[in-house]
Design a protein around this nucleic acid. Structure first.
Lengths: 209, 209
DNA sequence: CATAAATGATCTACGCTGTATAGATCTACA
DNA sequence: TGTAGATCTATACAGCGTAGATCATTTATG
């Protein structure tokens, strides 16, 4: 029973990786597992249940860092692992944003962040907010990168500027030289996590002993 | 022609607001406008084009702040306006994350953030990254709040903890008292924007004259 | 051991979906 | 009046999620 469910979720994830999230249909998943569509229902409930299960399946790829190491290293590891998951399953990360993190898998990850923040000396009252801020940014970055929000589509920066009348975009104009450069997304992500760590440190000094 | 397109996008947004994003079907939109489904195609291309148009329609609700005011006030205004849009159209914000911001409407908003960051004294090389960080967090927060990631579903914090064996969640256990409290989401959002502003200030001092 | 209950899988069918294709109906201008 | 272009309609098709009924096989119970 549980094996079958895992088999089904693996099939769904494989389909999403290969042909996008919209290619996940009960028929397609069933075909891949070698069953009829209706045979999936006892295992996953319905399609929504299948997608919920997929969220768990994805989150289970996140290694929970050893709580003996430095809090900063743990947050780094979590952040980069999350981004890795997003890169590995770009079509499926969107699900993480639309379904509440209440499955055991999600709670496990959240708890790891709680512990890291507590170990960093953040006041308990601030921990839940900073956890949400941290995971929102990390998840949002991974998703933006994976699902196209950061990409330019067909238009390069120059083309984008051309859509509007001359002088309508002073910001873009002033930054033209930098906007045309290719972006080092690894470095940008690391810098974001760095900034976030500084926010956490500031918050812990403020409330520190 | 352009009027019809606006009419179509308004209808689509109204349907999303009333019955969720999945209720946007070519037939439902056409019905609401008083046309047959196929009549939409010359105006929006196809369904994907309709959703792209919807992104523009949503972004156009964001007021671009007067560039004469303080940069901090401008970012605040943008952030809160974006969250307002997310609250007004909770079912539709998800689209903002999955489609690249290359429409004139999106570029206009991005430019406003660029200007605010430049006026804050951020070094031009850092402006694009901080814009992405800012909008990722603001958008991610609005979307998480609107689409249920921050909500607990049916399980209250106590119930969530119960899913795993005793002692498996030391973080949750240590924070129990705070996790049971209701959250003031307005205050949390303001605190996040505050932290972000501090990141920006730090970045501008570092590169300042 | 016999029987009942539960589980897993199947088949059929219904009302939905996006959209290709073809044809109808206007308006404007020569 | 004739024609070109824009706009909308009608029909049709393949694929979707899943309700409902049925059946086989395994598991639990008297």
């Amino acid at each position: 029973m549980a094996d079958r469910k895992q088999e089904i979720l693996d099939a769904a994830l494989a389909i999403a990786d290969e042909r996008g999230i919209d290619a996940i249909s009960m028929r397609a998943v069933a075909d891949r597992v070698g069953l009829t569509p209706m045979a999936l229902y006892p295992h996953v409930g319905d399609k929504s249940g299948l997608l919920d299960g997929l969220v768990g399946r994805i989150l289970s790829e996140l290694p929970v860092p050893d709580s003996g190491t430095d809090w900063r290293d743990r947050l780094d590891a979590l952040a980069h692992a999350a981004r890795g998951v997003a890169k590995r399953h770009p079509a499926a990360v969107g699900l993480l944003f639309s379904r509440p993190g209440i499955t055991p898998d999600a709670v496990r990850v959240i708890d790891a962040v709680y512990q890291a923040l507590l170990d960093a000396g953040v006041s308990p009252a601030q921990v839940p907010r900073l956890e949400r801020m941290f995971s929102t940014l990390v998840l949002g970055y991974g998703m933006s990168e994976a699902s196209g929000r950061f990409s330019t589509g067909e238009l390069d920066p120059r083309g984008r500027r051309g859509q509007l009348p001359e002088g309508a975009l002073p910001g873009h104009q002033a930054l033209a030289e930098y906007l045309d450069r290719p972006v080092d997304w690894d470095a940008e992500f690391a810098a974001d996590v760095d900034d976030l760590a500084r926010v956490i440190e500031a918050s812990s000094q403020q409330s520190g002993s």
